[in-house]
Design a protein around this nucleic acid. Structure first.
Lengths: 222, 222
DNA sequence: GGCTAGAATGACCGGGTGGTCATTTTTCGC
DNA sequence: GCGAAAAATGACCACCCGGTCATTCTAGCC
């Protein structure tokens, strides 16, 4: 299930996998809760049950540890995106978006700490190595949606007049917000999205897809 | 132009307005750049050119100072929302949204530090006094959009089938993301939204409104 | 000018941070 | 069982934080 982190110094990679996992999980937990700046190496050390000196032998700096954690989070997200894309190739664009959302909720259920780190990074841009890295991650997300739109356009499912790049950005914003609100209490308080049950989530997915598909302007058919 | 802060201890309010403004602006700057947790009272003190003891006599705690700043930011946003609502009462729903966005860009141009604080708070939920406060601010924003939708529905401009609350949340998410991307470089890098010129912005507004109005699914007319 | 109430000051406090390194402990080939 | 090489350790460093308070300064009244 969990791939080896493949990060840190040679010393870290030579550790018994169980210990690697323990240290890495402690770091994931800490960064997920506190983001980068407010995360404490002392807390990681305590949670992992190792000494401070060891942690700094495994990852030379706080930034090194964070980079490793982010790399794992981003690669998990990439895998999940690819998976959804391949599994839904024959569906219509709107069905694909639907599946993308449901898979997103499921991803959060299974990797909620990594999801927190990933989305927190995307929202805050808070990274030691400059925000270009974050801009790139965002771009990849938007490009993923843009590709789906291009395919849909070629298939004639989507209006020819839509601006692919801008629309991809907007749809991505909707998806991100929905996913974030699923695990963030204060975002949609009282609207049933936070930790919503499957029926609730399905309702939200339908509302979002209705908006994206047909908009909300009244027309002759309504 | 700038109303007196009306916050802090009696001592602070009894200061010469020029000094009040200087201290307050230093705080606004610091919180805008660093958020709450990473903001430093020492930095505020330095930027304001006063002593640490004085700052703590003006605002008993860091939280007190932050609350004052947030209060101003939130009230400015409320004023701006009310203004847009009143000025656009006779327009159609979609024109109103359009004006809301343009006014939002303009608000950021004129109060970009306060805007940063406001949006940062909304996104991070990072506040000393628990996130209920943030949940409330978010709710007010969504309710504002929900009210617009209700009016539009009553006027027959909007499909009867739309879920007002959920749709308000989604539209609010779109507006927020667009506004944030206008002053945040890494959000829509390469898409021309960051510090975009008026023509660029108008294009984005049109794309967003097209999506909200009619969606992107191809129909018989297309 | 002298007095005093109240404002301004910054050294100081306890506690936290990321990071280092001399020392101790463990591992492992012989 | 021994010795050397490698890994683990935690006391320690310089620096920063929010907040306090004894002391100094200053404005305003007589």
């Amino acid at each position: 299930m969990n791939a080896p982190p493949l990060t840190g110094t040679e010393l870290f990679r030579s550790l018994r996998p169980e210990k690697q996992e323990r240290v890495f999980q402690a770091a994931v937990q800490e960064f997920a809760v506190n983001g980068y700046r407010n995360a404490s190496m002392n807390s990681v050390v305590k949670a992992a049950g190792i000494s401070k000196g060891s942690l700094f032998q495994y990852f030379r700096t706080k930034q090194g540890l964070f980079d490793g954690v982010v790399e794992i989070a981003a690669s998990r997200v990439r895998v999940y995106l690819k998976h959804v894309r391949d599994e839904t190739g024959r569906m219509s664009f709107f069905e694909r978006l639907e599946q993308l959302l449901h898979a997103g909720f499921s991803f959060i259920d299974h990797h909620h700490l990594l999801a927190r780190i990933y989305f927190h990074l995307l929202q805050s841009g808070e990274t030691p190595s400059g925000s270009e890295r974050v801009a790139l991650l965002r771009k990849q997300g938007v490009e993923f949606v843009a590709d789906l739109i291009r395919v849909a356009k070629a298939r004639g499912e989507v209006k020819r007049s839509v601006d692919v790049e801008r629309t991809a950005f907007l749809i991505n914003a909707l998806l991100e917000t929905l996913l974030r609100a699923y695990y963030t209490e204060f975002m949609a308080s009282g609207l049933g999205l936070y930790r919503g049950n499957p029926e609730e989530l399905a309702g939200w997915v339908q509302t979002a897809l209705g908006l994206i598909r047909e908009g909300i302007q009244r027309n002759d058919l309504d």
